[in-house]
Design a protein around this nucleic acid. Structure first.
Lengths: 199, 199
DNA sequence: CGCACACTAGACAGACCGGTCTGTTATCGT
DNA sequence: ACGATAACAGACCGGTCTGTCTAGTGTGCG
């Protein structure tokens, strides 16, 4: 168990994953070849293939790592609030943080699946991620007492996607805040409607 | 001038462009190689390079063709209406038509520039397209008497992007209609605000 | 006719791709 | 001390990529 060493060099797996994360996100899954990844990781090619099986396996691990990070970051923002309205808008604050980070390149899942074939890691992980995001917004809209939580959750999701895309394509730093403002309007209208027309 | 022939076979240029449009859009600019394009077009490789200079030149021509098509389609929908509110929402109807078309694969510009380097045709044409779209929404919001037309135009643009993305990623056929409903809410709130607080 | 031009077919170059394999070194538990 | 395990470096494979080049074929025009 070499990971037990104090202050030890990260395992080959971790170094591969870190290198893949940086290169794949910055330059694209298709653009970056295996050789660049193993060079940055300081790892032999055989180790990559015995660890991840294929390039697609590495891509899957990279995307699942991104998904876990995003989930944690978004939920952390949500759980800072108790007011359900604030909780429903919190994902936009999480996105705002992300956009402000140097090297922001948009949604890793959208980028990776833009030209991916069916049945590859990119399309499969993306499907999970999108389902999770949609469910989150729907839950938050329900908790906020929106009249039609499924429809409202979906509209929040549209704005969330639009902001991510605009931040990437237009390099506009305040895209998430613009989306948040629009989301607040939609949400408030739906909450009022829900209160006005109770069961 | 061989194009003068009645019912003649399209020129090599047109066949190349048609083949590129189908293949690049369906499978991606990176995925599809030159050989597949020239095979489908029934054209020699030398002809491609004497006509477009490089693959990137062909990609540029493909994307500019997509831009022209989109511009015409959106403007046609806008000009069906005289009511400025309906005009501002018309792009969502145009998008709804597009999504319903078989083989819809999302935004060609987003897909092409997902993993494109700076300075390539994909990033350059995408920049133009996005500026045009933003200007359109801002104009339409202004004409509709929205209180803050720049902010409203931007929010409509966010929803437009989100709907395009969701239709592609989630295969939801009514994404444009959901976005249109949200846009209508935002627009109406802004028009009321504009009327309530006049110059 | 003869010339210019646009096109076709396909070999070729040089780089890069994902993936396999060989051989070596170091570190572990026993 | 010893065998197993994991990692290393890097050659190698078949295939694909963009782009160039040669050579031959029609076709319209003066």
């Amino acid at each position: 168990m070499p990971a037990t060493d104090t202050a030890a060099r990260p395992s080959a797996r971790d170094r591969l994953l870190a290198a893949a994360d940086e290169l794949f996100y910055a330059e694209g899954v298709h653009t970056v070849g295996i050789d660049r990844v193993i060079e940055r990781a300081g790892v032999a090619k055989a180790t990559l293939y015995s660890t991840f099986g294929s390039k697609d396996g590495l891509v899957r691990a990279y995307l699942e790592g991104r998904h876990a990070e995003r989930r944690d970051r978004v939920l952390a923002h949500v759980e800072r609030h108790t007011d359900p309205r604030e909780r429903a808008l919190a994902p936009f604050d999480a996105l705002d943080d992300r956009i402000a980070q140097p090297g922001f390149q948009g949604c890793a899942f959208v980028n990776a699946s833009a030209e991916a074939d069916e049945g590859t890691a990119a399309t499969e992980v993306s499907r999970e991620v999108r389902a999770w995001t949609r469910a989150l917004f729907t839950e938050l809209a329900t908790a906020a007492g929106a009249a039609e939580p499924a429809a409202v959750g979906r509209q929040l999701h549209l704005l969330y996607d639009g902001a991510t895309l605009s931040a990437r394509m237009d390099r506009e730093a305040d895209a998430a805040r613009a989306a948040r403002a629009a989301a607040a309007g939609i949400l408030d209208a739906a909450i009022v409607a829900g209160a006005v027309a109770p069961g």
